[in-house]
Design a protein around this nucleic acid. Structure first.
Lengths: 145, 145
DNA sequence: GTGCCTGCAAAGGTTTTGCAGATTA
DNA sequence: TAATCTGCAAAACCTTTGCAGGCAC
């Protein structure tokens, strides 16, 4: 197993992506990126604002949204539609998800072996499984035309 | 392949479910259920309101929401979180989905054979695939406790 | 210095809630 | 008749937009 990334590594990734896109490196972007990368939870925009409050006292919710959208375009995070509020997933590698129909929480499943394996992984984590679906995303035929 | 359900069959299913739960059969519930069952599209609440406007002139959006929520509890429809507005899926049998990241439209994939098959099905339908994830839903360990 | 980014305020859209009146059983 | 459902209005919520000031380059 590889060593855990240091904060400096995490920053370097973001900086190179921003520079590569001709975008600026700002304290807000660095701090939000570090918070996202350090927590493997799936934060909502508002939760991220609360997390960042100590470090960035003046941070506003619209800035969080625009930064998350930017990160999504850079491929640093993935936006996951969830009941209530959208959640943002840090992990860019293929993996599966469990969503709670009651509280809306989103959990990573440590597998990418298929539907049956995902079910078992969720059950192994103590969740009660009601459904397992493959969700494919991309650009639809209508929008491509 | 089985014959397509007639409107009377569709109604009968809803009526028996409502009666079984001690709930009332109303014209709004019957009409909305027929519309949902007849269109294999994935309607938003507002789109369903528009569809029903001719048949039920006085129908209000909150009624559509409460009816859809009721149908979801009865297992007649499934609510699918999507960017923008939630969409409601009529088909209770296991199948997979394609979501367009640009327009938010949701499409059924006529397969339940696994991740790779779902990808191929989406590509075969003319969509550009960017991602395929297994989404397991249910009640999480925290909520069970 | 130039142009992008942040913070603020406000608006847009979706969804939920509360209550009076109508309707089903 | 009694309980429930509908329709209406309003509010709560998440998210986006527009603009003035500040900051990275």
């Amino acid at each position: 197993m590889e060593p855990t990334s240091t904060p400096a590594d995490v920053d370097a990734v973001l900086v190179s992506r921003l520079r590569g896109a001709g975008l600026r490196v700002t304290p807000q972007r660095l701090a939000l990126h570090r918070l996202i990368a350090s927590s493997n939870r799936h934060l909502t925009a508002e939760a991220l604002l609360r997390e960042a409050a100590q470090e960035l006292p003046g941070l506003a919710l619209p800035t969080v949204y625009s930064t998350l959208e930017l990160f999504a375009e850079l491929g640093v995070v993935r936006r996951v539609a969830a009941p209530g509020a959208a959640r943002y997933d840090t992990d860019p590698t293929p993996h599966d998800h469990f969503t709670c129909v009651r509280c809306g929480q989103l959990y990573d499943l440590d597998t990418s072996a298929g539907r049956a394996a995902a079910r078992r992984a969720a059950e192994g984590a103590g969740h009660r499984v009601e459904n397992a679906t493959v969700v494919v995303s991309g650009v639809c035929a209508g929008c491509l035309a």
